[in-house]
Amino acid sequence: MDGGSLESCQADLTRVPTAREVVRRAIEEFVRPHQQRYLIEVLPALALIAIWAVLSSHVATGWPRIAVALLPLGAIGWMFAAMLRRLLGKDELEQRIELIAIAIASACVGLASLGWALLESVGAVAHGSLFYVLPGLIAVYGAVKLWALWRYR
């Protein structure tokens, strides 16, 4: 490698991307085919979840209550399948970033829930709800993915 190319590589390692570059890259990612397909697949599931949010407060008794309570499972299952298809459409670095984010999110939520259960067993904390596991996974996954995207920017 000649001196000029080496200098340009070193300069690029320390250069912080401008806001315009960040926006342009986000748009480039958004218009990639696997990303478009993912959005098309996920939108109906999100619409179903929105309908559930409205219905769940109006159905109070009997078997419809149980059916409505379980309604989001199908939509969320469909979303997971769409996420898997999206993951398989990514290239090797993107899949590596996803793996890091999923692994760290699983470890953090696993440790937090185990810690809570241990405290619960000695009566130090109130009975915890499983309702927070999925949002916790999504939140940690998102935070780790942002870090990984910055790391490999």
């Binding site: 390692l13 670095l93 993107e94 920017r153």
Partner: peptide
């Protein structure tokens, strides 16, 4: 591949 991957390879 993605542009991000090309950039990550180029910058080592």
């Amino acid at each position: 591949v993605s542009r991000q991957t090309v950039n990550a390879i180029e910058t080592g």
